[in-house]
């Protein structure tokens, strides 16, 4: 008896045009929980635009994003996050004047349900919520190997750890789908290897679906179960890593005819 499973994340004919420019057209993807999918393509292909569509930064001009079968049309970015889609950024965007642990705690804000009065009078409810969040943030920092850096300013972290902190912050939102935008950019091989194990831990432990944009082909080929390739906003191939590596259209897109 084959049961039809609803994919965690599904897009139907997703597309956006800026004036006459069709940045992304007819983008379809289905992801199940615990799946790691790679999204690759040459520079300017529209990968980050897809991420912006999936997180509500851009409003799609056509198509829908479905999370667990529920359409997210017309929602704002923070509502996408509440629904369960979290992301990291290609160019690191941390809260520079806040400590490492505060960066993570910010992402827990939506799950803290005390009111202004609770905060003003420091009620037990306030302390309980704060303690829970502190514990949770420490746990996530431990997973990402940042626990000993909890109280320093996030801007004073080295580059590779800033990337990891972004992932920890995304994890703190309790997401079902994690979008990673070039997490290994600018990292040396050791840092990339560490990142890889971090990503694997996250997937095994939280069972989330991960969509990964990456230019480091060895990383993509190693960890991704499926790969989708886009060029000029159009999906030109999707399938297993071996299939993609030998696909003539993909090779043409990367190397030119």
């Amino acid at each position: 008896m084959a049961e039809v499973k609803t994919p965690v994340l599904e897009t139907k004919h997703l597309g956006i045009s800026f004036g006459g420019l069709h940045a992304v057209q007819d983008f379809n993807i289905q992801m199940n929980a615990g799946e790691l999918v790679g999204l690759i393509g040459p520079n300017g292909a529209g990968k980050t635009t897809v991420f912006n569509l999936l997180t509500g930064v851009y409003v799609p001009t056509e198509g829908t994003v479905l999370l667990n079968g529920v359409p997210l049309n017309g929602k704002k970015t923070h509502q996408f996050v509440e629904a369960g889609i979290a992301r990291t950024f290609q160019n690191i965007r941390l809260f520079n004047d806040m400590t490492v642990i505060e960066n993570v705690k910010v992402a827990c804000t939506k799950d803290m349900h005390y009111s202004l009065l609770d905060a003003t009078f420091r009620t037990p409810k306030f302390w309980k919520a704060e303690k829970e969040v502190t514990d949770r943030a420490m746990e996530l920092l431990e997973i990402c190997g940042l626990a000993d850096k909890a109280d320093i300013l996030s801007s004073s972290l080295p580059y590779g750890q800033q990337r990891k902190l972004e992932i920890a912050r995304a994890l703190a939102t309790n997401m079902k789908v994690l979008l990673l935008d070039e997490p290994a950019a600018g990292m040396n091989p050791t840092e990339t290897a560490e990142l890889l194990s971090c990503i694997n831990t996250i997937r095994d432990r939280f069972g989330v679906a991960i969509l990964l944009i990456e230019h480091d082909m060895s990383l993509v080929m190693n960890v991704c179960e499926r790969i989708q390739v886009i060029d000029y906003g159009l999906t030109i191939a999707s399938g297993l890593p071996e299939e993609i590596a030998n696909n003539p259209r993909v090779i043409a897109a990367y190397l030119g005819e």
Partner: peptide, 8 residues
């Protein structure tokens, strides 16, 4: 941008 992407 990062704040809204963190659910704020």
């Amino acid at each position: 941008i990062a704040a809204s992407a963190s659910g704020i």
